[in-house]
Write a protein that binds this DNA or RNA. Structure first.
Lengths: 342, 342
DNA sequence: GTCGTTTCTGGAACCGCTTTCCGTGACAAT
DNA sequence: ATTGTCACGGAAAGCGGTTCCAGAAACGAC
């Protein structure tokens, strides 16, 4: 009743209920061997004192914490938004804490490893991070359940996308509209993802009988801008616009890039899709509302799938070997790519 | 050297360095009374064993954890993106963990309180949450540093915006373009923010000599959509379009709403800004790239300011009474509201 | 009525680290 | 030779729980 607070511990509860602390602990952990009678007394005491077990102490004692951590290189992009959305639903039910490790783009490795080594994490989700061998070793030695999103690694549950096929679909779509000069806006990194999307781009061109021209691939490399950002898309588009033979369609490796590109076009009075068609990647929510065609990676579902399986592993219910789940991006056609060329 | 792992404790380090555990602890906590010589030996041992102090044990012992928690009702909107951006920079330097408490929209109160009572948080940022008196009491009793963003409460450091003025500026801008029938798209909630923005809307109309018509205020109330979402903006715009006398400009209380509204307009072949002008709120990053006028709330700066002060409080360097920091949103004019009426 | 079980509970060690309280030896200052 | 730092060791008491072990009570069976 008295909301005095200032550290209500398990001892207070024990005293109040007239039992030993071990008994209180049993009640807390729903141990079967405690009489209904005592359990009730304890429960009432807990209620009355408004007691909540201390997360840290608990974790310390039972070696292994019910904490799920998510490590993301760039948390602050809308790209991960729906992923988190898928995750948080399942998290609410369980009594888990979400620890966020926002790795900067630089020194990701170091930050991550330090984070892990400090322990206190029983489940970890890595998002959009290249898992090098030393990181992999680190992950294994920490003995936590791990799932990797956006990268494929045989030793862990990984969820990834068929980037070749995704790019192929996007570009095939553009070629199908009659475009012959299809540009590509990419990030300047040489990540697996980027390479595969370029492969897909080439494959689609080849299938359509369009020659591949490296000069049609641009990236807006800037010191201060991340490769997938609006700014870089803006820069890249400008590069494409000064070519002798201009492009009539552009495939971008992110929606943000596409937005930036779109702005560059608008500034020059170039219409989308009449003059230039645009297709993005990620299918961010706003794309639907601005009419940007995009590749849907079903982020939310992937998030749900990953977290469900991860929670199973954490609770020890799942012991099968690491799985690899590949999703194929779906094209969402919107107004930015609806105009058919002659 | 051997990466054997499996719990390297402070004892291992002590043994390896040939010192007592208390000395190791002193080194860890940068106590002044330890010779440079010994310090180096210990540091080397730590390095060699790859030892990281256990976060939980540490926190438990030194009563008070270096953990910053952020509670957000709806993490998954781009609205908070730049806020987090401002926060994380400062967080990287310190050795803090970021605990995320994503309150669902429902039962916010319960979720938050439970979260807090489990302790282990020395700093807390509440974002976009109405601080009721019981929550306030809760916050005080937990003895952590608290800062509130997007709401004003005298007992805590709070960072908020002058919503009346923000709305007034937006609408004044529209009136200045010659618009007479200016609609408003709001969320269906009766939050402080909403009420104030309506006040600002009225004030601006009055100043411009335009009569206030309640039927020009619409909200896209839907069971499944949050009030600030694209979907609700879309719905609301549709309502405004079926009015006898249509509006020529719309002020939206979020950029997402504006995006949704814009889509509704596009579907009907209504041009922006020629037929209808649009102004949003929040100045989300993509707004800049799609050309949506908006009210800039300087989220990133607010995030930085708040976290800086919060960290000061957490470290005990700051003891002055709670401050209240009010920011005034700035209008960013873009193409969605550049057309001047006759 | 005694013995073996089962059931419930109390006591105590322990998780990994911090911190306090001496105590000691070394070395410089007086 | 005495007094004072300075740097460190050793031991022990937490922090708030969990968990193992043993003992007490309750129960049924012979």
């Amino acid at each position: 009743m008295p909301d005095d607070r200032s550290k209500v511990t398990i001892y207070d509860v024990a005293r109040r209920a007239g039992v030993a602390i071990s008994t209180v602990s049993r009640v807390l952990n729903e141990s079967p061997d405690v009489s209904t009678e005592t359990r009730k007394r304890v429960t009432i005491a807990i209620e009355a004192l408004n007691f909540r077990p201390d997360r840290r102490a608990r974790q310390l004692a039972q070696q292994g914490s019910p904490t799920l951590a998510i490590a993301i290189p760039t948390l602050t992009t809308p790209f991960h938004t729906s992923l988190l959305k898928g995750i948080r639903v399942h998290l609410r039910e369980k009594d888990l804490d979400l620890l966020l490790c926002d790795l900067g783009s630089r020194e990701r490795h170091v930050a991550l490893v330090q984070f892990l080594q400090r322990g206190a994490v029983s489940g970890l989700m890595l998002v959009g991070l290249k898992v090098t061998e030393d990181i992999a070793a680190e992950l294994k030695s920490m003995g936590a359940a791990v799932s990797i999103i956006g990268y494929q690694h045989g030793d862990f549950d990984s969820y990834w996308w068929d980037d070749v096929e995704g790019a192929r679909r996007a570009v095939t779509h553009l070629a199908g509209l009659g475009h012959q000069r299809i540009g590509m806006i990419r990030s300047s990194s040489d990540s697996r993802t980027q390479i595969r999307r370029i492969d897909g781009y080439r494959a689609a061109l080849q299938a359509a009988g369009i020659p591949f021209r490296p000069e049609l691939i641009a990236s807006g490399h800037t010191e201060k801008h991340a490769g997938y950002s609006e700014e870089s898309g803006y820069e890249a588009m400008k590069k494409l616009l000064v070519l002798d033979e201009p492009v009539t369609a552009v495939f971008c490796t992110s929606d943000a890039q596409a937005m930036g590109a779109w702005m560059a076009l608008r500034e020059q009075g170039i219409r989308v899709p009449e003059d230039i068609a645009l297709v993005g990647y990620d299918d961010v929510k706003t794309s639907r509302f601005v009419g940007l065609s995009s590749m849907d990676q079903a982020m939310q579902q992937v998030g749900e799938q990953a977290v469900t399986r991860l929670l199973d592993r954490m609770s020890g219910n799942l012991n099968e070997p690491a799985g690899s789940f590949c999703h194929t991006p779906e094209l969402r056609v919107r107004s930015s790519s609806t105009f058919r060329r002659a």
